[in-house]
Amino acid sequence: MRVTFTANGRRVEADDVWEGESLLFVLRERLGLPGSKNACEQGECGSCTVYLDGEPVCSCLVAAGQVQGREVRTVEGLADPETGLDVVQQAFVDAGAVQCGFCTPGLVVQSHDLLRRNPRPSDNDIREALSGNLCRCTGYEMIMDAVRLAAARAGASGEVSR
């Protein structure tokens, strides 16, 4: 089947999509958007997190046909071509929150959503928001640092990207 939707503000079309295929597969294998990672395909790790109509979801658990006509924003859609990395992305780089990097795209999207809704999260808020994102490298401390840093910078200079 054919699926048409908006990805990162652009209208995209995928052909010959199998009816049981996930949004994650379509993004990575058919649309050249490999930012979202496939690590578990069962909702456990959060590395495939994308925005669907403004809500972060596991793209491995969304059937491709379900996004027909809807809006998807992936980690590729957070950076601004003019001004560069989003404040959350820059904070992950600066805080050293990235080791192998496999978990990073999902954590960045999920942290971005947290700061959009709650610009001054407590440590508990951060842990709660990231409880569905697994990282096997960092031990999470640097990730906590990155989100705190992003919150501080976003608070000083406006906010995370819209």
Partner: peptide
């Protein structure tokens, strides 16, 4: 929401005739 159904599809545990 697909949070049960997609796991079954992704892991080939189920092949319904239609979704």
């Amino acid at each position: 929401g697909g949070t049960d159904v997609m796991v079954e599809l992704n892991f080939d545990r189920r092949r319904p005739s239609a979704l």
